[in-house]
Every structure is written in C-alpha cells, then in structure tokens.
Design a protein around this nucleic acid. Structure first.
Lengths: 312, 312
DNA sequence: ATAGCCGTTGCCGAAACGGCAGCAACATGT
DNA sequence: ACATGTTGCTGCCGTTTCGGCAACGGCTAT
C-alpha cells in the first residue's frame, strides 16, 4: 500500500534521522534519490524545508509545518490500514506508549498483560522518560499514547484524562513515622530524606512547598530513579516522596508504609495526565487500549484515594 | 503544490462525481488515466473501492474508509497551505458554510459582512439546507462549518457549540394574540396556523407537542420556507412558529410580534449546534471566523433570552 | 594533509504516467 | 426492435518521472 508520493515518505525519514544519507539507508534507496525528492518538495513549496548545516539537516519553520502535515497523513494512513484490516477480522497492530516511571511498577504491566491476554495480536512498545519528554515524544510521533505529570500541555496535544493521586512519604515499617496516618513536610524533614533530582517531576511538585519552609533541609541522598528511591526507603535509609500510585500493592510485599502528605490541612496532589496527539484519529485497537487505560487509572484514583481518609 | 500521488486526487474526484469520465473532465485528463489509477489503488488496497453500476460508481465499505482518509489528507493539505501562506503575510482563503434557513435573516449576513470588512481576502460560500443535510455536507467535505438544529450528531462530527433559543409564535401586529407576552400551543391553534412541512426542523420540534393535544389542528397553510412563513404571518394569514433568532430586529421593521411558546409553564427550546468535521484541523482563518460565530451566537442567546421573561 | 562524511549533480536505464482510439455492456429514446 | 449515447476498460506509444551509480566540492576531526 504505497498511496502517497515517495516525497512524503522520504521527507519523513529525513526529518527523523536528520540526515539524507541516513534516511536513504533507512529506506533502502540511494541517497541521491532522497536528495532529489527533498529538492523537488522545496521547489514546490517555494521555500526551503531544511537548513543545511555542516552535520546534517534541521527543519526550518516551513519545514516544521510540513512535518506536521506529513505526520498527520502517515498516522491517518496507519489508521486506515488498521480499519481495513479489522474489516477482514484481523485485529492486530502496534501500540507505543511513552510514560513516566511511576507507571511501571503496577499500572502498565497489569494493563498490558490483561490486554495481551485478550488481544494477542497487539504488540506494545513502552518508553520510560521524564514528563516533558513524554509530551515531546508524542509531538514527534514516536509514541501513540503518553502518560505524564500534567503540565501545561501544548495545543497540538489532547489531554484525554486527568487523574489526581496523593503525594506522600514512603518510609520503612520500622521508621518512627510509620505509625502515623499522615505526615507534614516538616515532620519528614526531621529525619534523613531521599530527595528527587530535578529530572523527576516529584522535585517540581515538592520544591514550592519546601521553599515555603523556614529552614532548608539537608538531603541525605539525591536520586533520579523512582525505583531506587523506593528501595532506599525500604532499607530504612530515609524518607522518600512519591505518588501514591501502586504503592498499596507494594506495601504488602515490601517493608514500606505510605503516608499521605498533609500540607496545612489539605493533601498534596500529583496530577497525572493521559495525552494523545490532537490532530489524529487513533486506530480502533489503540483507542480500545486507551479507553482501558483511562478506566483503570480512574479506578485506581477512586480506590487509592478512598483508602486514606481526607486530611482536611 | 502537488505533493500527493495522482491516485489520491483522482479517487477524490471520482468519489465526488460518481463517475470516472466526469472526474476526468473535472481534472482535465483522459478518462483512461483516471480509470487506471483507480484500478491501481484497488490492487494495492487488495479490495474493490467502488461498485460498478450501469450508470457510474458507488463506494464500497472499504472505499468509504479510503474516502475518509483521503478527505483527511486533502483537508489537512489545505490547512498546511494556508499556514505557509499566512507566514508570508498573505491571510486569505475560502470558507464554506452549510446552515439552516434561520440563520440567513440576520446572524450570517451580519457576521460575514463584519468579517469581510476586516479580512477582505477571505471569501465565503454559503449553502442553505435542512439540518440533516448540513451534517451530511460536512461529512462529505463540502462545507467547512455547519450550523443546524442539534440532532444526535455522528461521531465523525464535532459539536463546537450548542446554543438554545426560544421557539415561539410569530403573528402580525393586528393579530388578537399580539398583545400577550407568551402563548400556549392551544391558544395558537384556536387561530389559523401556518404549519412547517417535515423538511423543516421546526416540524420535528413541534410535532411531539401537538401530538399530546387532544385535538389535531387543521393547518391553514403548510410551507417549507422559513422566509415564506414569516411573510405570511406578517400579512395576517395566520400564526407561524419559528426560532427566536433574529426576530427582534425584524419585529421593528416588519409588522411582526414574537411570542415565546409556553409549554406547561416552561419554554420550548430550539437547540442550535455548530459543527465541524472531527478529524480535521481547521486553517487559521477558518478557525478565526468560527470563534466569531460561536461568540456572536452566544451573545444572541444571552441577549434574546433576556429580552423575554422566563415563563416559569 | 589525510580520511571520512556530508549533500548535490550528470548520466542513463527502468518504471510510471497520460493521451488516443477502440472495445463490450448497458440505458434511453424513437 | 433499432439506433444512439454513455459507461468503464484496455492495447499501444510517446513523455515524464524515478532511482542507481559515480563523481564533485564543502566541511570536520584526527
């Protein structure tokens, strides 16, 4: 099925690789063919699409506009293909998910496993990264579905759902704070804390609260891995701060206790957003999984927030 | 700018004209060229796209899927073109509007005139039709913006806004009812009425109410034109029923009085929806007009509903 | 300076495209 | 029943476009 002129596909490959020769290798054609198609495109648009630097090509403003159009075309072509395929009973495809680390512990593996058991012909690709990178991966078309801390999202992304989870402290069973129901930030800072580095969005959630305090804490440990922080907390090294997501299940297995943060009588929320490219219609099998994701995350939001009493 | 393979454009022309030779005439090419491209497409998709009848071609299920994709591609290409053009300062384009007759009296001419005075390079095409035809014109890509009585809209259309206006009776100044503030349906039926034919959506709004009455009225006149009904009412022929839209201005000029309908103590609403193809990003100049349309209609909703007291 | 990678450009064979004329199938009008 | 017009389809052939090969100039890093 090669409906569209080679120029479209070549342009897309060049944009992704940032190089004509690399794109040619990717496409299994001669680099001259790619070069000519790009030149022809630029002539038809009437404006250069790339800036030729010494090392590779960079999109111009017009080039980015065309990139948007080309991505819309190719993604919609994918959808059309899957629509036709599903008509003859073949329900298969590939779903690519970009998400932050908090999801990898329980939400995503549970969901993917459940979905795979029903639809075995749907394959998954998951990419773990920071929140802003998640949005960027979506814009570049490298992921179909993105899950990230809800930042102010650009207009070319659509926020499918917004779920809020408690931010809390994670301590070992033997920790002096472990018997409390909730904790304030001040109470935590009396003990050694495992602080998140700015690469993690938890840092940006807690920083404004910490800034309000009179004294700045001396962090015992700074880390950039949710998983590592969790393991450190389990070993009693200090107090870690995390989203409540999936902690309940973990608390039973590991020696961990989750304590919702109490910020002047109200909880501290960590908003999780589910994102999708706005200018795109998802294939049926992708949309199906997306619905399950939204449902599951909503279910966890309800359940996990009910598990702890309101602070106020 | 002919990025896309001729097959796409030829297919689009054939779909619109329903004939290969007609499409060929439209495209200024030989019919054999068109026929071959369609055959090639069908071979690549692996399934026939059209059903060949004695007189022309009709889309198959797969054909309709491809038609959707092709429309997405071509409409997005338009958007890209206008984006590039606006980059070099040229803010121009064409907007096609499908709407029901109620809008032609004041809303649409006012808005178009105002918009043209600001952006002279934007041209308009308006098509007046029934509500369900408005939605159909949007789906077929024959209109950019649709305004219709808010029916249950198909998922491939997006309801940008929903505004409600009073349904009421329209009578001449000398009519016995003219001095009332509101009227019930029964009160109207004591006089000759100008009834809407099923082609008009007013029919479908009033029919369930009329059906509840004990006696069925004998219509003096049945018509399928809003304008004609209005003119008849002005001449004292009978009572017409219309949406309140734009009547206020008209009442001053013509010899007309608008009386909101009172249905067991509550108003009778006529919901007006503004629609757009869901799988489409509008060009900037189209979106700009759309925003003005939504704003203006919201303004009228507020103003005209405030002009008459609540019945309840 | 040398080597390596970059994008571009002639040259040429191959593939795709479009126009012309003619075909059979069907609908319409006399 | 017959003639006529229209439909989509198909060989044939000239034109256009595309892609592969090799070479060129520009640039960077060693």
């Amino acid at each position: 099925m090669r409906f569209h002129s080679p120029a479209i596909q070549y342009f897309h490959a060049v944009r992704r690789t940032g190089s004509i020769r690399a794109a040619a290798r990717l496409l299994n054609v001669a680099s001259s063919a790619v070069s000519r198609q790009i030149l022809k495109l630029e002539q038809e648009v009437g404006s250069p699409l790339f800036e030729r630097t010494a090392r590779g090509l960079t999109l111009t403003t017009v080039g980015e506009m065309l990139a948007r159009h080309v991505m819309n075309v190719l993604q919609d072509l994918d959808r059309f293909r899957s629509d036709v395929a599903s008509l003859s009973g073949a329900w298969h495809g590939a779903i690519s998910i970009a998400c932050i680390e908090s999801l990898t512990e329980s939400v995503l593996p549970d969901l993917i496993a459940a979905h795979r058991s029903r639809a075995r012909r749907v394959s998954f690709t998951t990419m773990v990264m920071g929140s802003s990178d998640v949005l960027e991966a979506l814009r570049r078309g490298e992921a179909d579905i993105g899950i990230a801390i809800a930042l102010r999202h650009p207009p070319d992304l659509r926020q499918v759902a917004l779920k809020r989870f408690r931010l809390g402290a994670l301590v070992a069973r033997e920790h002096p704070l472990a018997r409390r129901k909730t904790v304030t930030l001040e109470q935590c800072l009396a003990f050694p804390v495992i602080q998140a580095l700015p690469e993690l969005s938890i840092y940006h959630l807690l920083q404004p609260l910490i800034a309000q305090l009179s004294e700045t804490p001396e962090p015992a440990i700074q880390a950039d891995s949710i998983d590592l922080m969790r393991e450190l907390a389990a070993r009693g090294v200090g107090v870690a701060f995390q989203t409540q997501l999936g902690i309940i299940r973990l608390s039973r297995v590991a020696q961990l206790v989750f304590l919702p943060l109490d910020n002047a009588g109200s909880p501290v929320w960590s908003d999780l957003g589910i994102y999708v490219r706005a200018e795109r219609t998802l294939p049926a099998f992708t949309d199906s999984f997306l619905q399950e994701l939204v449902r599951e995350l909503g279910e966890r939001e309800r359940r996990e927030n009910a598990a702890y009493p309101h602070i106020a």
